[in-house]
Design a protein around this nucleic acid. Sequence first.
DNA 1: TTGTACGCGTTATCAT
DNA 2: ATGATAACGCGTACAA
Lengths: 334, 334
Amino acid sequence: MNRNRITIADVAAAAGVSLMTVSRAMNDREGIHPETRERILKIAEKLGYHPSQIARGLVTHQTATLGLVMPDVANPFFAQIARGAEEIASQNGYNLFLINTAEDLDREKKALNSLLEKEIDGAVLCSSRLSQIEMLPYLEALPATVLVNRTLDAPCPRVVTLNVNDCQGTQQAVDYLIAQGRQHIALITGPENSISSQRRLNGYLRGLHAQRLPAREELVLHCSPTTSGGEEAALHLFGQQPEIDGVIAFNDLVAVGVLRACLQTQRSIPAQVAVIGADDIPLAGLTNPSLTTLHVDQTALGEQAMTALLHLVCGEETPKRIVVEPKLVQRQSA
Amino acid sequence: MNRNRITIADVAAAAGVSLMTVSRAMNDREGIHPETRERILKIAEKLGYHPSQIARGLVTHQTATLGLVMPDVANPFFAQIARGAEEIASQNGYNLFLINTAEDLDREKKALNSLLEKEIDGAVLCSSRLSQIEMLPYLEALPATVLVNRTLDAPCPRVVTLNVNDCQGTQQAVDYLIAQGRQHIALITGPENSISSQRRLNGYLRGLHAQRLPAREELVLHCSPTTSGGEEAALHLFGQQPEIDGVIAFNDLVAVGVLRACLQTQRSIPAQVAVIGADDIPLAGLTNPSLTTLHVDQTALGEQAMTALLHLVCGEETPKRIVVEPKLVQRQSA
DNA sequence: TTGTACGCGTTATCAT
DNA sequence: ATGATAACGCGTACAA
C-alpha cells in the first residue's frame, strides 16, 4: 500500500540538511543559500520527491482543491462550463473535483458532504436543485462558493451568484417572433423545479403581455431538458394546438427535439413554424436548419465563475452578483 | 482561515468519550457498544462534524480520490466518458479530479504531478500524448492507472489499457464504402501524434489493400479533431481531388465538418459523396443528413474504465487489456 | 543561514 | 468496550 513514498525526510537525509531547509527550498522561501537550494532541488528531482499536499493541507488548511458540481457533464452546456472553469483553476495551480448530480437531490447532498470532508478551498455549484434551507448550511460550511444559475433570497458572505438573464432572453425571443407576425407562440420550458425554467416562463409571459397578446396556458409545456424531451413535448403540443407558428425552447437540445418533431409532422421551418433555442451550444450552428438561439458564451461563463471563486478564495474584491445577458443569434430556424 | 472546523476532539468532548471511540463510531468499526455509537453519531450530526479526509489520508495513505485526465471535456466524446466514469466513481464513494490537457504535453505532465502530490488512489488517462518514456515514471508512481486509447509496448503492473479498435472499425468503413461501389475514398484522420489517428490510417490502408485498391497518399489528410478542422481539410481535399466519392473521418465532429464542406461545394450526400464518421456522439443522429458512423458507447467506455480502475485500486482481479469493437451504424450520410 | 520542537486531525497499536 | 499514545508528512514559531 505505502509503496515507500519518498518524504521530505529522505531528501533531507540525502542532502545532509534538516527538514526545514528542504521545506524552504521546495517552497521557494527566503532565508536559504541559493546554492543549497539548487543542490536540494536537484536531489529532490533525482529522488522523485513530490511534497505531499495532504500533509501540507493538514497544517495549512488549504488544499489547492476546488469543486465543480453540475447536473450533467455530458450536456454540452455544462461541458463547456466545465472546460472554462477547469482552465482557470489549473492556470492558478488548483485541482478541480468534478461532480455529476444527475439532478438528484440526494446525490447533490452526498457530493457536497464529500467535498466538505475533502476540505476543498471552494466550489462552483451549477443549477443546484437544493432548496434555500438545505443549501444554507453548505454555504456556511464551504470556505467560498459561486452559485451558477441560482439566486439567493438574501446575500451570503463568501458567496457569489452568477446568472444568465433567461427572463430577458426569453422576452427578447418573444418580441422577435411577434415582430415576424407570429401569433401562436408556444413555450417548451424545462423541469418545473429548475430556476432558469421558471425564469423563461416569466420572460415568456412578460413578453406576451408587453405586446398585448393573451397568454394561453395550453401553449406552455415543461419537459426534460433533452432532445427527446423536446421532441415529445413538441409532438404533444402540435397535436393539441395545430395552429402553433412559433416555439421557444428551454435550451438548444430541446429545440433540436422541436426541429425533429416538425420534420415528422411535415412542418416547414421557419415558414410554418419558427423555432428559437437557447444557449447556443456548438450543435446549434450545425443542425439543418441551423438554430436561431439565445447565445451565451458558456466557456466564458465557466471562466467567470472560476475567476470569481478564486477571488473569493484569495480574499480579493469581487462583485457579489453577476448577471450575463444572452444575445439573440439569428440563423435559419427563425 | 480556519473557520473553527469541528474536529473529532470536539465530538469526543461533547460525548464525554475518547477520540478513538468517536473514530470507531464514525467508521462503523467493531468493538463499540451500539448505544454509544448511536449517541456519538447523533452528537456528531448535531455538531455538524465532518471527518477530515485529509487527516485520515495522512495516516491511511488512501484518499478516496481518483483522477480523470483528458484532452477536452467539451468534446462530446470525452464528456460522455467523463459522465460514465464519474458515475461509477461516486457510486463507490470516490471523488474524481477532472483534468483538461488541451492536448498540451506540458499541461499533461503538470497535471499528473499535481495528482501525484494530491496522493490520489488511481487515475484514468485518456488519449495521453505522452511518449512511452515520459509516461513510465507516472505509471510507476501512481498506485493504479487505466489507459484509455493508448497502448503500451510492454504490460505494466497496476496498469490496465482500454482501447477502441479503431483499426478494425476504419477497415469496416472502407469495406462498406467499396461495397457501395465507391472508388475514390479519402481519409481525414486526426493529429499525427494521436494513437487512434494512426490506427485509423492503418485500418484504412488495410481495408484498401484487402480489396486490392491502391492507397493514394494524396487522399489522406491529418486535421485537428474538430468540426472546423474537418471542414478545412475536406475543402482542401475536394479542391485537389474532385473525384472523391467517399470520406472517412477521424470522428463525428470532423465528419460534420465534411458535411459542411459538401454543402458549400454543392456536393450531394450520399449520392455524390458518402461520409462516415466515428464514435456516434449524440450529435451524429441529429445532423441533416444524419451521420453514418462507427458506434461506440462512450458512457459505457467511461464506466468500464472506472470499473477497471476500482478493481486495480482494491486489488481485485481484472483483465490487463480491454478492447472495444465499434459497430457501423447506418444512417443517411453513407 | 540553518535547525528544533510542536501541532494539524485522524487512525493503528497496544493497553486497560 | 474503551482509552492512551504514537505515528502519518509537513509548516510555523522560535532558537541557534
